[in-house]
Amino acid sequence: TTYKLIANGKTLKGETTTEAVDAETAERVFKEYAKKNGVDGEWTYDDATKTFTVTE
């Protein structure tokens, strides 16, 4: 399944996707990606669109 991340960070803005077996796995991947890019904010997830959003 393809999951999408929308990053609304102070230093990183944009979108990326990952293939994962479930939302929990995708969330781990995206949180690691955000951490590597210095983004720390509020996370939301929309199951209907398989989209995570992080906003600083």
Rank of each mutant, 00 (worst) to 15 (best):
T1N: 13
T1Q: 12
T1D: 12
T1V: 11
T2P: 05
Y3E: 02
Y3S: 02
Y3H: 03
Y3D: 02
K4W: 13
K4C: 07
K4V: 10
K4Y: 15
K4G: 03
K4H: 14
L5V: 03
I6Y: 07
I6E: 04
I6N: 05
I6G: 02
A7N: 05
A7I: 15
A7V: 15
N8W: 14
N8D: 09
N8A: 09
N8M: 14
N8I: 15
N8Y: 15
G9D: 04
G9N: 06
G9Y: 06
G9I: 09
G9K: 04
G9L: 14
K10D: 08
K10W: 08
K10P: 13
T11V: 11
T11Y: 14
T11F: 14
T11D: 09
L12I: 10
L12Q: 08
K13M: 12
K13L: 12
K13A: 10
K13D: 06
K13V: 12
G14L: 15
G14K: 12
G14M: 15
G14V: 15
E15C: 15
E15Q: 11
T16A: 10
T16C: 15
T16K: 08
T16Q: 09
T16R: 09
T17A: 07
T17G: 04
T17L: 07
T18G: 03
T18V: 15
T18M: 12
T18S: 04
T18N: 03
E19F: 15
E19T: 14
E19P: 04
A20V: 04
A20I: 02
V21I: 13
V21D: 13
V21P: 15
V21R: 12
D22H: 04
D22E: 04
D22Y: 03
A23T: 08
E24M: 11
E24N: 09
E24G: 09
E24Y: 10
T25L: 05
T25C: 07
T25P: 01
T25D: 09
T25Q: 13
T25V: 08
A26F: 01
A26Y: 00
A26S: 02
A26R: 00
E27Y: 15
E27L: 15
E27M: 14
E27R: 10
E27I: 07
E27S: 08
E27V: 05
R28Q: 11
R28N: 07
R28V: 08
V29T: 11
V29S: 07
V29H: 13
V29Q: 09
V29N: 06
V29K: 09
F30M: 03
F30L: 05
F30G: 00
F30E: 00
K31L: 06
K31A: 04
K31P: 00
K31G: 03
K31V: 06
E32P: 01
E32C: 09
Y33K: 03
Y33S: 02
A34Y: 04
A34P: 00
A34I: 07
K35Y: 10
K35C: 11
K36A: 14
K36F: 09
K36R: 13
K36G: 06
K36S: 12
K36Q: 13
K36D: 09
N37W: 15
N37F: 14
N37I: 14
N37K: 10
N37P: 01
G38Y: 05
G38N: 09
G38M: 06
G38V: 03
V39D: 02
V39N: 03
V39E: 03
V39R: 02
V39I: 15
V39W: 15
V39L: 15
D40L: 12
D40Y: 14
D40N: 12
G41E: 01
G41I: 03
G41M: 03
G41Y: 03
G41Q: 02
E42S: 10
E42T: 14
E42Q: 13
E42N: 10
E42I: 15
E42K: 11
E42R: 11
E42A: 10
E42D: 11
E42L: 12
W43R: 00
W43K: 00
W43M: 04
T44G: 06
T44I: 08
T44N: 08
T44E: 10
T44W: 08
T44A: 10
T44C: 08
Y45G: 00
Y45V: 01
D46K: 03
D46A: 04
D47I: 09
D47P: 14
A48R: 11
A48V: 12
A48N: 11
A48Y: 10
T49C: 04
T49Q: 06
T49R: 06
T49V: 06
K50E: 03
K50Q: 09
T51R: 03
T51N: 02
F52G: 00
F52I: 01
F52Y: 05
T53M: 08
T53A: 05
T53G: 03
T53I: 09
V54M: 06
V54Y: 03
V54P: 01
T55I: 09
T55H: 08
T55G: 05
E56P: 07
E56A: 09
